[in-house]
Nucleic acid binder design. Structure first.
Length: 310
DNA sequence: AAGTGTTGCAACCGCAAGGCG
DNA sequence: TCGCCTTGCGGTTGCAACACT
């Protein structure tokens, strides 16, 4: 009879035994490692160690790239918490990696939402990406239309990993804006219903409302909104497929946006035909959308300079 | 330098599915 | 068909490392 099962961190010697076993027999027969008396670990533990740490093709100690983050976000919106499935799209990443990444991200968002004005955590310094460090990017979908035909709206959205995720179903393609660090563009037509509803709002009301209508009605102004750091971290999430999950306790894992249903490029959502967003039958009004934010969230928004100053 | 809070990661646990006798 | 065993997956936890006061 074997002694007690060993738990806890693996030692280098144990790793070596495990690796040798896999070399001989392949990544299987995990239980035989114990039955042969090679290790006092369960087969389950051995398998986990191999899959998560010892496999030769792993990106151990390498942070998720922006591209990987984008992929996870898209796939989580599509598959839900199917980490193993998502991991198959990310070479060198395990389901555990993806799961931990997502968990950290959710915690970060939750913290930001709960304490938008709290003293900045020291940890934020080693969290990325910081908006102003994000390189300039271009919208992926280009158009021959002029800006006058499809006046872009500057919305508060991070270009760091959301731009190409946003694939509005609108038939009018994107113009070709260059996105700087604090802004990205949405197709105006997609937002027009919201813009009409919010039409009466102004920058003076910015504590409660995002004055999209101002920009929509004056697209030529191309307003740019400087954001405080915490809001810079939060507001980018507006563009993410699963953004609404942040606000919804116990919402379904599919990341359904109450207004727009995301259909990713990985394509299991068939009703839309093309990649992108489709309209929900019961959209949430912009007001209810905005009211889900902490009341003081927009305190970080600075007043726009008046046009003559531009 | 010590204390404290936060984060990321490694590993465990429980459950379910599948294979096999 | 049933029960056992193995494997795989998702959720959770514990802890070391780090940053700040």
């Amino acid at each position: 009879m074997m002694g007690e099962m060993k738990k806890g961190p693996w030692k280098a010697e144990e790793d070596e035994v495990l690796i040798n076993h896999v070399k001989k027999y392949g990544p299987k027969d995990w239980s035989s490692i114990r039955s042969k008396g090679l290790l006092r670990r369960t087969g389950k533990s051995c398998r986990l160690r191999w899959v998560n740490k010892l496999r030769p093709d792993l990106k151990n100690g390498v942070k998720f790239s922006a591209e990987e983050e984008r992929t996870v976000i898209e796939l989580q919106a599509e598959f839900g918490n199917k980490w193993a499935r998502i991991a198959t799209y990310l070479p060198g990443r395990t389901d555990n990696d993806v799961k931990n990444f997502w968990s950290s991200r959710q915690k970060r968002l939750a913290r930001i939402l709960q304490t938008p004005q709290a003293p900045k955590s020291h940890k934020t310094d080693r969290e990325g990406p910081v908006i102003h460090d994000v390189p300039t990017v271009k919208a992926s979908k280009l158009s021959s239309l002029t800006k006058e035909e499809t006046s872009p709206i500057n919305l508060f959205c991070s270009p760091s990993f959301t731009v190409h995720n946003l694939k509005p179903i609108s038939a009018v393609p994107f113009p070709e804006p260059e996105l700087n660090s604090n802004m990205c563009y949405f197709e105006q037509n997609l937002l027009q219903p919201e813009l009409d509803i919010m039409e009466t709002k102004s920058w003076q009301d910015h504590r409660q409302q995002i004055p999209l209508s101002f920009q929509a009605k004056h697209p030529q102004l191309q307003t740019e909104v400087p954001l405080a750091s915490e809001s810079q971290e939060l507001i980018p999430q507006l563009g993410e497929p699963n953004f609404f999950e942040v606000f919804e306790n116990g919402s379904d894992s599919g990341g359904n946006n109450p207004h727009l249903q995301y259909v990713s490029s990985y394509g299991t959502e068939g009703s839309c035909g093309n990649d992108g967003w489709k309209e929900n039958d019961n959209p949430v009004t912009p007001d209810s959308f905005i009211h889900d934010f902490p009341i003081d969230m927009f305190d970080h928004l600075d007043m726009l300079p008046s046009p003559p100053e531009w």
